[in-house]
Amino acid sequence: MKIIRKVAMSYVYLNDEFVKSDAAKISVFDQGFLYGDGIYECFRSIGARLYHFSQHYQRLRQSAEALSYALPYNQRQLEEVLLELRQRNALQDAYFRITITRGRGEIGFQHDLKSALTCVIIAREFRGFAAEHYQQGIALRVAQIRRNAPEAINPKIKSISNLNSLLGKLEAKAVGAFEVIMLNNKNHLCEGAASNVFWTKGGWVFTPSESTGLLEGVTRSTAIRLCEEHLNLRVIRGEYKLQDLLCADEVFITSTSLEVMPVIRVDDFTINQGVVGSLAKRLRAALHQDMELSGE
């Protein structure tokens, strides 16, 4: 006899309403669907506290201003919506994604850009990644595709039009790698498809600078602060070549979902004899402590 298990119904927030997720719909004429004309932001809550939400909101507003969006909610209003959505979905530590598009329009680029925005907020329980990844480390692929040039697409816009990163992810999947490292159009190290990269050499910590065209991740800035203020390590930002990474003592990547993920292999190069370095462990522990102590 087939056993049917009931699945708890979740909610999303869609254009000023809490809607059951299977009933949430947007128009086929939505400009985000047709043209990738939209922005997004992902972040977490620790219990009922939104972790570093003010930084995520400022980046959302920065993206909105770059695309001439008038955000429909201020920070306090969004916080209230997020916490209500967390409660409706009975979440403990939540992972949120806010997506805002230009809304319903017409086919072609001559339509009115003043249409009402579409706003969707999704919340689910944060599950993270398997412990073995942090214990054993991961492999990275150096992507053949290059990161979008900042002269072409402003990296300060966190856009839903993310084909560049998707193509990088497909490269990683094809060779069984966890993530890619992308170079920019000047052959400098830039970032992962959905992460920022760090490495150590001789007691120093290095990471690509904003001038390379990377997206300035909130977790990246937190990692830099924790290294300098809590671990007494100076972080040097600059324009680096791939060889700098391959000669590293230790490599790790960061993001909201990855936290601090250790890397033991880049293509065919083994990092630190294939052993997870101590800094990645210490920095992740410091990040967890920061989450627990955060007043946001």
Results as ranks from 00 to 15, higher is better:
residue 213 G to W: 06
residue 267 D to K: 08
residue 146 R to Q: 14
residue 55 Q to Y: 08
residue 3 I to P: 00
residue 136 Q to F: 02
residue 6 K to Y: 07
residue 26 I to Q: 15
residue 148 N to I: 05
residue 174 A to R: 10
residue 264 I to F: 11
residue 235 V to R: 01
residue 243 Q to Y: 08
residue 106 E to I: 00
residue 263 V to M: 13
residue 130 A to Q: 08
residue 169 K to D: 07
residue 31 Q to G: 00
residue 276 V to T: 08
residue 17 E to F: 06
residue 109 F to H: 09
residue 87 Q to E: 15
residue 144 Q to M: 09
residue 81 V to N: 06
residue 71 L to C: 03
residue 111 H to L: 10
residue 207 T to G: 05
residue 141 R to Q: 13
residue 31 Q to C: 06
residue 193 A to Q: 05
residue 64 A to T: 02
residue 255 S to P: 01
residue 263 V to N: 07
residue 290 D to L: 04
residue 170 L to E: 03
residue 216 E to K: 14
residue 247 C to F: 11
residue 142 V to C: 14
residue 92 Q to L: 12
residue 102 R to V: 04
residue 29 F to Y: 12
residue 293 L to S: 04
residue 84 E to A: 05
residue 51 Y to K: 05
residue 242 L to Q: 09
residue 224 I to H: 03
residue 155 P to M: 14
residue 106 E to S: 05
residue 275 V to Y: 12
residue 248 A to E: 01
residue 283 L to S: 06
residue 64 A to Y: 03
residue 223 A to F: 04
residue 129 F to Y: 15
residue 283 L to I: 00
residue 209 S to K: 05
residue 53 F to R: 08
residue 281 K to R: 12
residue 171 E to Q: 13
residue 51 Y to R: 00
residue 198 F to S: 10
residue 31 Q to S: 06
residue 161 S to M: 10
residue 233 L to V: 04
residue 178 F to T: 11
residue 148 N to M: 13
residue 146 R to M: 03
residue 79 E to Q: 07
residue 97 R to G: 00
residue 165 S to A: 15
residue 37 D to P: 09
